[in-house]
């Protein structure tokens, strides 16, 4: 390459993607070993607990999938893994809702974090059909009742014409592959966005009084204390 021409790596798509990825998420942002001092409350654990529940959901679901949808009706071991699947789903929603409440009351979308909130909210919304298709893949009375009841809402919106709750094969495919893929993809995007932007700093007490003093307080707090720990990016325990 001549000195005046573009160096080859400038034209490489691979190099371009690598540079952008590293700029957005350098390794110490992706896997931080420090986090802001204000991250000091039990309320911060519900994101990672939701993640833990999701891991259990997927692990137990994988075991059920390896043996096929009929196994758990006849095997007590299968029934145990079905129970594990059910309770981990209950835990997933349990922790996700508390996480949601916590992040709402922190107004955690501040400071350019709207996409973090939005990916989280969409995850919750997509998790609902992920669970529903599971309920109707059970091959028992529950599945009969839930599918024949829920079909009316699907049909009324026209969705039922291509998403047929009474077609077990279709629902099973959605439940074991398509919707988990969507949930895991959304959660991955959510977590990476959290890593990129860091955990939202506390609301300034002055936000509630005079806006003029808000900036002053922010500067004062930050300048006076920016010494301990890593000077690196803001980080969070999901």
């Amino acid at each position: 390459m001549t000195a005046t021409g573009q160096p080859p790596e400038e034209r490489s798509w691979t190099v371009g993607v690598r540079r952008r990825a590293l700029a957005a998420l350098p390794p110490d942002k992706l896997l931080p070993d420090s986090q802001p001092s204000y991250v000091a409350s039990w309320i911060y654990i519900f994101g990672v607990l939701s993640l833990g529940a999701l891991v259990t959901v997927i692990a137990s679901g994988t075991i059920l999938a390896t043996k096929g949808p009929g196994w758990w009706h006849t095997s007590s071991l299968g029934h145990f893994f079905n129970s594990l699947h059910l309770w981990s789903v209950e835990l997933f929603f349990f922790f996700m809702v508390i996480h949601l409440w916590a992040k709402f009351w922190m107004s955690a979308w501040r400071g350019g974090r709207a996409r973090v909130w939005m990916t989280g909210a969409i995850t919750f919304i997509v998790a609902i059909p992920a669970a529903l298709t599971g309920y109707i893949s059970q091959q028992n009375f529950d599945a009969q009742w839930i599918s024949t009841q829920a079909k009316d809402a699907m049909n009324a919106t026209g969705i039922g014409s291509f998403f047929n709750l009474l077609n077990f094969g279709q629902m099973y495919g959605y439940h074991v592959f398509l919707l988990p893929l969507a949930v895991v993809g959304l959660v991955a995007a959510h977590v990476l966005l959290v890593r990129k932007h860091g955990v939202v700093p506390p609301l300034l007490l002055s936000d509630l009084t005079t806006p003029a003093s808000a900036t002053a307080t922010a500067r004062g707090t930050a300048a006076g204390t920016a010494s301990a720990g890593s000077p690196g990016p803001v980080s969070e325990a999901e």
């Binding site: 001092s37 000091a40 409350s41 039990w42 309320i43 654990i45 916590a102 010494s227 301990a228 720990g229």
Partner: peptide, 27 residues
């Protein structure tokens, strides 16, 4: 029970003292 448990866990998480990090990283 599940709904009440959610509120209780939420409230406990809000008010329970968070151990360990109190004296660190402060000017």
């Amino acid at each position: 029970i599940v709904i009440v448990a959610m509120f209780v866990v939420f409230l406990i998480a809000l008010v329970a003292p968070f151990p360990g990090h109190r004296r660190r990283g402060r000017s």
